[in-house]
Computed example of a mutant assay.
Amino acid sequence: MQPFVYNGLPSRVVFGQGTLSRLSEELELLGCSRALVLSTPQQQQQAQEVLQQLGDKGIDVYAKAAMHTPVDITEDALERVKSLDVDCTVAIGGGSTIGLGKAIALRTGLPQVVIPTTYAGSEMTPILGETRDGEKTTQRTLDVLPETVIYDVDLTLTLPAGMSGTSGINAIAHAVEALYARDGNPVIALMAEEGIAALGRSLPVIANDLTNIEARADALYGAWLCGACLGSVGMSLHHKLCHTLGGSFNLPHAETHTIVLPYAVAYNAPAAPDAMARISRALGCEDAATGLYDLGRSVGAPSALSELGFSVEDVERATEIATRNPYWNPRDVEANGIRRLLSDAQSGHRPKMDGGGEQ
C-alpha cells in the first residue's frame, strides 16, 4: 500500500428523521443564544419557521442568500450581524445559503449550524467560493467549516425531482474528484465509492417517487459522504470548470455540475484508471463517463450547457479562464482538450474517452 496522510474534519453530524427538533439543544452545546437564520428568498418561510422554533435563541431571518455567494450580499448580511449582536448563524437550505454562512464565519469567526435541504454537500467542506466582479474564487480554510450539521431526512421530502437529481449528481462530483485527488487516501476512496453508490441507486427512485423515505435517507447519507470527501481532499478539473461557468457565466450551480461531470471524467479517464474502476463499480456500469451521463438522463436532468444559456461563442472565453490558473489534475490541462470538452458539454453529445463526444 502507498503511504498516505488522512485529516479528519472536526464537524458534529446529527443524522436521522425529525432531527430538526434538536436544533435548540445543539445551539446550547455551542454556547449560543442569539442566532441569525439564513436562507434564500425562496426558502424564507422555512427560515421563519426555524426562527419560531428557536424561541428566544433566535434573533432574526436574513433571506437574501444567492447563488455563487456574491461578496456584496455577504457585506450586507454582515451589517445585520453587527447590528443585532448575533453570536451564531443557522443556515437552512442548499449551497447558496451554506455559502453565505461560511462567508460570514470567515469574516467574524461566528459558529455555524447548517441544516441542508438539498444534496449539495458543501456543509461538510472547509471550502468557500465567492464571486466578485464576474469571477469566482475559492479558498480552503477550517475557519469556514460548520461546527454542526443537522441532517433531517424529512426536510428533503419536498425537494422537487429536478433539484433532487441535479443536487445529488453535484454531490457525486465531489466524490468522483476525491478518487483521483493528489492528496487522496484509502479512507476517502472508500467513502467516495460508497457515496456514489448510495446516490446512484437512490436518485432514480426519487425521480419516480419523491416521498420514498428509504431512498431519501439513502441519498442524504450519500450526500454527506460525498461532501466529506470534498472537505478532506483537493479539487481538480471538474470543479475548476464549474467554478468558471458559474462565476463568469452565472450558470446554475447544480445543473452545471451535472452536465459537465461526465465530460470531465472522460477527459481524465486515461490518467486515472483506478478511479474510473471504482466509479463504474459504484454505478454498476461498464464506463464511468457514460454511466454518469446515463444517470443524469434517468433523473431528467439537463444534458447540455446550451440548455442553461451557454453558447458556442462562450466556449473560447471559458477555456481561457479555466486554463489560466488550473487546479491540480491527474491529466495535464491543455487548452485544445478543454475547448473540446466544453464544446461537447455545450452540445450535450454522449461522452466518450478523451473528453470527446459522439453523435
Rank of each mutant, 00 (worst) to 15 (best):
M1K: 09
Q2E: 14
Y6H: 15
N7V: 08
S11V: 13
S11F: 09
V14P: 10
V14N: 11
G18M: 12
L20H: 11
R22P: 06
S24F: 04
S24D: 15
E25L: 13
L27F: 09
L29C: 13
S33Y: 07
V37Q: 07
P41L: 02
Q42K: 12
Q45F: 11
Q46I: 03
A47H: 09
A47P: 02
Q52I: 12
Q52G: 06
D56M: 12
K57S: 00
K57Q: 13
I59V: 15
V61C: 14
V61H: 09
Y62A: 08
K64M: 00
A65Y: 08
T74Q: 14
E75S: 12
A77Y: 01
L78P: 09
E79D: 13
D85V: 09
V86H: 07
V86Y: 06
D87M: 04
C88Q: 05
C88D: 05
A91D: 10
L100N: 05
A105I: 01
L106M: 03
L106D: 02
R107S: 12
R107F: 07
G109A: 10
Q112A: 01
V114Q: 07
P116A: 10
T118Y: 08
T118C: 02
Y119S: 05
A120N: 03
M124I: 00
I127M: 01
K136Y: 03
R140A: 09
P146V: 10
E147I: 00
T148A: 00
I150V: 12
Y151P: 04
D154N: 15
D154S: 14
T156N: 08
T156A: 10
S164N: 11
G165T: 05
I169M: 15
I169C: 09
I169R: 09
A173L: 08
V176E: 01
Y180C: 08
Y180T: 08
V187I: 14
L190M: 15
L190F: 11
I196S: 10
L203M: 04
I206W: 02
L210T: 13
R216T: 03
A217S: 14
A228V: 11
S232M: 12
S232Q: 12
L245P: 03
L245N: 09
N250I: 05
L251F: 06
H253F: 04
H257M: 01
I259S: 07
I259L: 06
V260P: 02
Y263Q: 00
A264W: 07
Y267D: 02
A277H: 13
A277T: 13
I279S: 03
S280C: 08
R281M: 13
G284K: 03
E286S: 13
V299G: 05
G300K: 01
S303Q: 15
V312L: 14
V312E: 15
D314C: 08
A318N: 04
R324L: 08
P326I: 02
Y327M: 14
W328N: 13
N329E: 10
P330V: 05
R331Q: 13
R331C: 07
D332M: 15
G337D: 10
G337V: 01
I338S: 08
R340W: 06
K352I: 12
D354C: 06
D354R: 15
D354A: 08
